[in-house]
Simulated assay, not measured.
Amino acid sequence: MAVHLHEDDLPADVLAPGPVAVDTETMGLITPRDRLCLVQISDGQGDEHLVRFSPGSSYAAPNLKAVLADPARVKLFHFARFDLAAIEHYLGVTAAPVFCTKIASKLVRTYTDRHGLKDLVRELLGKELSKQQQSSDWGGGELSEAQREYAASDVRYLHAMQTILAERLEREGRTALAQACFDFLPARARLDLAGWPDKDIFSHES
């Protein structure tokens, strides 16, 4: 198992076929303001790839974009809504089809209100994640070893969790409902980007 750091794009043909786990690191939580600094991606075979973008980057990244936009590859996220918005805004592609472990968790782990990645990894896989680097500066000239490990760990377990959560969705008869939610996520991300991040447009409220 190794963590590979790349500048500005993913090397060609480094990923095995099939679903890929994806995450992003940005300078903050307001997508148009806080630039995309890092995209993490893994094919679930043991290695994680970190693609770093420097300030002023053109975000050309043709190899990375081809993987993210590939309609034959499912993209696994935890809280896909945020990552999809960052990817669409900065890379200009829609990273679909999608499986979101946070939405799946909310649909089947109704016995708890703890749906964070750390909680899921602990319960489903019996492993501990460190979130110490979550609020660190991802836009600096160098990534520390701690930052690299944190970023890699965000995609390391998504394949295994997707398998477990898909089984639970099937068991509880909620697979079709989950899929409808996943299919809507790119539109939900576009609503966030267009200025409706805090409004439920389906609500009866004025």
Results as ranks from 00 to 15, higher is better:
residue 138 W to A: 03
residue 193 L to W: 14
residue 16 A to H: 15
residue 39 V to Q: 10
residue 100 C to N: 15
residue 177 L to M: 13
residue 130 S to G: 12
residue 161 M to H: 05
residue 129 L to E: 05
residue 159 H to Y: 10
residue 79 F to V: 01
residue 5 L to Y: 07
residue 107 L to F: 00
residue 203 S to T: 08
residue 109 R to L: 13
residue 18 G to L: 13
residue 24 T to K: 03
residue 110 T to Q: 15
residue 136 S to W: 06
residue 127 K to E: 15
residue 104 A to L: 05
residue 10 L to K: 06
residue 154 D to G: 02
residue 83 D to K: 06
residue 21 A to P: 02
residue 88 E to H: 15
residue 36 L to T: 10
residue 184 F to L: 12
residue 3 V to W: 08
residue 98 V to G: 05
residue 183 D to N: 06
residue 7 E to G: 00
residue 187 A to N: 12
residue 2 A to W: 07
residue 53 F to S: 01
residue 72 A to M: 01
residue 100 C to W: 12
residue 33 R to S: 11
residue 91 L to G: 04
residue 22 V to W: 09
residue 179 Q to A: 12
residue 8 D to R: 07
residue 27 M to L: 15
residue 105 S to F: 10
residue 168 R to M: 12
residue 128 E to F: 01
residue 142 E to H: 04
residue 28 G to L: 11
residue 174 R to G: 02
residue 6 H to Y: 10
residue 113 D to Q: 08
residue 51 V to W: 11
residue 110 T to E: 13
residue 122 R to K: 09
residue 204 H to S: 11
residue 17 P to E: 07
residue 79 F to G: 03
residue 72 A to N: 13
residue 123 E to F: 05
residue 197 P to T: 09
residue 183 D to Q: 06
residue 116 G to K: 07
residue 68 L to E: 03
residue 142 E to W: 00
residue 96 A to N: 08
residue 143 L to K: 02
residue 197 P to R: 08
residue 50 L to H: 13
residue 206 S to A: 14
residue 173 G to T: 11
residue 148 R to D: 04
residue 102 K to P: 00
residue 60 A to T: 13
residue 55 P to E: 14
residue 118 K to S: 13
residue 26 T to F: 06
residue 172 E to D: 09
residue 181 C to F: 13
residue 134 Q to K: 07
residue 10 L to I: 08
residue 44 G to V: 06
residue 51 V to Y: 09
residue 121 V to F: 00
residue 87 I to D: 04
residue 149 E to F: 02
residue 57 S to C: 10
residue 165 L to R: 10
residue 103 I to Q: 14
residue 3 V to N: 01
residue 105 S to N: 08
residue 201 I to E: 13
residue 163 T to L: 13
residue 32 P to S: 08
residue 11 P to G: 08
residue 205 E to A: 12
residue 42 S to N: 09
residue 89 H to R: 14
